[in-house]
Write a protein that binds this DNA or RNA. Structure first.
Lengths: 179, 179
DNA sequence: CGAGGTGATGTGACTTGGTAACATCACGCT
DNA sequence: AGCGTGATGTTACCAAGTCACATCACCTCG
């Protein structure tokens, strides 16, 4: 993964070949790469099934009298807590690489929808119906996304969770102005 | 496009080759296919730049004292008006094909985000800030998506716009229950 | 009527992502 | 010493996508 992101940053995603990545990652080959990652893009998004699980479990673990948005907020707390400060720089580089490639943006959009889907499932478990469940989930994903962007761009040592809570608060406030 | 959707429905997306599509579309070749569509998936999503334009222009054309959600509602009216009844069956087949392929779902997610981005841009033009603009846009996209699904599954002759207005109303109602 | 231009298509060669079958090697266990 | 097992390599293959060049139909203009 480090080899890949380095090469993507240096030469761009399209100009980088899977063989190059494998080679830089310690003299490996294409075959080995594809044993670890389903496709070339996935090297930048691997391990997100874990994020889905964290979100879903946090929602399911929420004590009963909780509103959908409260459950989602708890899920964001659980997820953001897994992002230590030392992943911030890597996240920033990741974001700049993704921003330059439509293919990668496409995968990112899909991954966001998968995260949302995980939360929707968990919310359904607790009896939240649609469209409330999808709505709460999408707002949560949007909050996380915005928080991640601000976190990776930030210089001070504020934690990702702090940004996420701010984003969610901003969203809740904006909702009333929608008309 | 018809050849492609037929083949995808018959054999699945992965099992269908671009050469087959081109061949079925009147004895053409791979090369010609790629002159019309940027890639294999795009054959199912071509022409959506038009949708983006319709949405954006409707929002920009909205008289001044309109809330973000009112503008988005107008945009949905404009877009849904372009979907005549005779596209319903095609839409249904499109949806069942996409539902079976992760690759196609990925492209669909991306296209949704592009539509949302178009509305965000137009809302910004009229001075709507963030996160209100993104929020209104995403709700609009979600409404359209839900409406499209119900429309393609429906048997009666109700128009897509009718479903869209219902979806939007449902979303507005659900917002207050989010907590 | 014929010459040249234009747009859509075909051909062939190429790169790369991605898959599959089989071979190899290192390691640990018994 | 021998036996699995997991990670890797090799080779061959298919299909997506690109590119340069050729062809053909059709249209227009002199």
């Amino acid at each position: 993964m480090r080899a890949a992101i380095d090469l993507f940053a240096e030469q761009g995603y399209d100009a980088t070949t899977v063989n190059e990545i494998a080679e830089r990652a310690g003299g490996l080959t294409k075959t080995t790469f594809f044993r670890h990652f389903a496709d070339k893009r996935e090297v930048l998004f691997a391990g997100q099934e874990l994020h889905s699980r964290v979100l879903a479990e946090a929602i399911e673990a929420m004590p009963e009298p909780a509103s959908p948005l409260e459950a989602v907020a708890a899920a964001l707390d659980a997820l953001t807590a897994t992002f230590a400060e030392d992943r911030r720089e890597m996240g920033r580089r990741l974001r700049t690489v993704i921003d330059k490639s439509m293919e990668l943006q496409e995968r990112a959009a899909f991954k966001r929808s998968v995260l949302a889907e995980a939360m929707v499932g968990a919310l359904h478990e607790r009896g939240v119906g649609d469209p409330s469940a999808s709505l709460a989930a999408e707002l949560g994903v949007r909050a996380f996304h915005g928080a991640f962007a601000r976190w990776t761009d930030s210089a001070d040592g504020r934690a990702l969770g702090e940004f996420a809570r701010e984003e969610l608060a901003g969203i809740r406030a904006a909702i009333s102005e929608l008309g």
